[in-house]
Structure formats: structure tokens, C-alpha cells
Computed example of a mutant assay.
Amino acid sequence: MSEQQVPKPAKDPMKSFRGVLAGTLIMEAITVALALPVVAKLGGGIDSAKGWAVIAIAVALVVCCGLLKYSWVVPVVLALQLGLIAFFFVLPAVAIIGLLFLAILVWLLWLRREVAKRMAAGTLPSQQPTTGS
């Protein structure tokens, strides 16, 4: 008795998740870059170590958008979130950005896991047999 194979969906839903994650990372990079005036006013200026760290994180988020096809990028993105949260004692406003986007990323990763489970079980709508009328 042969095992029944689960049909592949017509469109790969994981490509959609990469697009959503890329869009989220771009929005986060913009938000982090918009925090630079706060760093300039409260954090010792943009040319301080705090300013350069915020700029580096914003640039790293944009770079990660282009590398989302690799599996090692998601832990890097989560590490960048922890880098933002580490600003809690020196610049709480930047840390709040990190906490908000960490919550969004955790939710997106949970959604991706659920879709992967449903895809493996063959229960996605695009995996269902079509009925001709």
C-alpha cells in the first residue's frame, strides 16, 4: 500500500511570507531611521555610538530584506530586535520600537508555521481538488 502524497499548492505561500516579512522589515527600518531625531536630541547626537548603532541597525534591516530566501536571516532579524530592545535604559523610545516589531515578527512567524503545517497536511484551499461544473 503506497502512501498518499499531498498535492503541492498552486502558488507557494512561503513566497508570500517572504514578501510580507520584507515589507515589515522595510517599515521597521523607516521607523528606526525616524528615531534618529530622538537620538540626536536625547542620545548624545547622531555622531555618538548610540546614533551609529541605530543607523547600523536600520541599514542591517534593509540588507536582511534582500537575504530573506536564506534560513539564517530570521535569527539575525530577531537578534536585531534584541539589539533595539537593549536600548531600553539609554533610549526607551528606540526600545519600544524594537518591542513592537518583535511582537509583529513573532506573530508573522507563528502564521508561517501554521501555514506550513496546513500545507504539509494538504488542507490549504489551493491544495483541494477542484470540482468541475
Rank of each mutant, 00 (worst) to 15 (best):
V90L: 07
A93F: 12
F17L: 03
V59H: 06
A22T: 01
G43M: 03
S48V: 08
Q4R: 15
Q4W: 15
G19A: 13
L61W: 07
I30E: 14
F87W: 03
R118N: 10
I96G: 07
A79F: 08
V20L: 13
L78A: 12
K41G: 02
Y70Q: 06
S2T: 15
G19C: 07
V6P: 10
L36R: 02
W110F: 08
Q81H: 13
Y70F: 12
K69D: 11
G66C: 11
C65S: 12
L80G: 00
L99H: 15
I46K: 03
I26M: 15
A103K: 05
K11T: 08
W107N: 06
V32W: 03
S71A: 11
T24C: 06
R112G: 00
V76L: 12
D12Q: 06
L100I: 11
V54E: 01
W72V: 06
F17C: 01
L102R: 01
I57L: 07
L124C: 11
V63A: 09
L80D: 00
Y70T: 05
V54K: 04
D47Y: 02
P129I: 07
T123R: 14
G45N: 11
K50C: 06
K117R: 12
S133D: 08
S71W: 11
G66E: 11
G66A: 10
A121F: 14
I30R: 12
A35D: 02
K41Y: 13
G44K: 05
M14Y: 12
Q128D: 10
